[in-house]
Nucleic acid binder design. Structure first.
Lengths: 186, 186
DNA sequence: GCTGGATCTTGACAGTGACAAGTTAGGTCC
DNA sequence: GGACCTAACTTGTCACTGTCAAGATCCAGC
């Protein structure tokens, strides 16, 4: 864009750069002014779209939950496939994933955010329908969610790196499947 | 303390306040200057003990891993008890837990940190010895760690609150046991 | 072609982490 | 008991950040 005014796509561009930078340096080092500079606009331009820092993270999380819902629905109906899809999403979109459940960074009562969160929640829930003979579906759902969320988080933070539990060169998706396949819900 | 000089206990006091504040407001809102003010010292005093922000988080994580190792060892040898102890620790010391695996906040190569991390890793590993007839111990350990880490993280971030998967008034420890008891490792 | 509203800029302010240089206290050695 | 050394803390400063207020610019619809 030659002229700075009416960038046209600023909101989307800032969100994309934010996801990139969070994936690379973590949430803590993200600077609104840095994002503005990277997008070639003035330091206060992002505020117009997101309000404040919380607003940016809220928008990013909303986008993230929507993307997650799509991935989970596409992976169904087998719960194990849904679980692996959760891990795949977390590692394919680390910038979004890092923010999804950071309630300290988000405007928890944002209507769009809660709607998107609900959508991904339903997608996860539908996965449990694929299981049969389960005495306590809610517990199974909790366990499945916990397992994939914990695995993705720990992998992402490099917690497995020095633990010789995994081949460092292993790819996370097949590692996740290895774990999920070894778990039984009674 | 009447005189500001040689506070005597500044390092410990700052660490304690830091854990409190992280538990309350999250890592993002933690300010070194705020901690200094709360401890009644000048704004640059904490830097003498921790160097910089990363140093503070590294010290807090080191303390956290040590506390975790103690808890896990005391809970053994049954893997399920170890798993529940992990959750109990995460929710009893949220300020420490929030920082343990935040590699973006920590000085990953700090020797004391890596030593403490190794200690808690061993404690977790010892738990798996209590299981018999397991074909793939490493996968079991990964799964167990993932499940409790994910559950504690999601609980801590309030992710279960609006999901009607759990009675909101349920206590996390018994909820964790309910899940762990329903999981079988093949 | 005028007007209203959305988009972006400019300028300013308080708060933050980090650094440098100075000050104080407590112990040690003679 | 006096000089000295080092750890602990202070003071002052800097660049940077998020946020706000006020102004400039552009576009769409009438």
């Amino acid at each position: 864009m030659a002229d700075a005014y009416h960038h046209g796509d600023l909101r989307a561009v800032v969100l994309r750069h934010a996801a990139d930078q969070i994936a690379q340096d973590g949430v803590d080092r993200l600077s609104l002014r840095g994002l503005a500079q990277r997008a070639g606009v003035s330091h206060a331009a992002p505020a117009h779209h997101f309000g404040d820092r919380q607003g940016l993270f809220t928008a990013l999380a909303t986008e993230g939950f929507d993307l997650l819902a799509v991935e989970l629905q596409a992976a169904g109906p087998d719960l194990r496939d849904v679980a692996v899809a959760y891990v795949r999403f977390a590692l394919a979109r680390p910038g979004h994933f890092a923010v999804l459940f950071r309630s300290d960074l988000l405007r928890a009562d944002d209507p769009e955010l809660t709607a998107a969160r609900r959508r991904s929640g339903h997608a996860l829930r539908d996965g449990v329908r694929g299981l049969e003979g389960v005495s306590d579906p809610a517990a199974v759902q909790l366990a499945a969610w916990s397992v994939v969320h914990g695995f993705a988080s720990l992998w992402r933070e490099g917690a497995f790196a020095g633990s010789d539990l995994l081949d460092p060169s292993a790819d996370p998706e097949s590692a996740a499947r290895r774990i999920v396949d070894r778990l039984a819900f009674t």
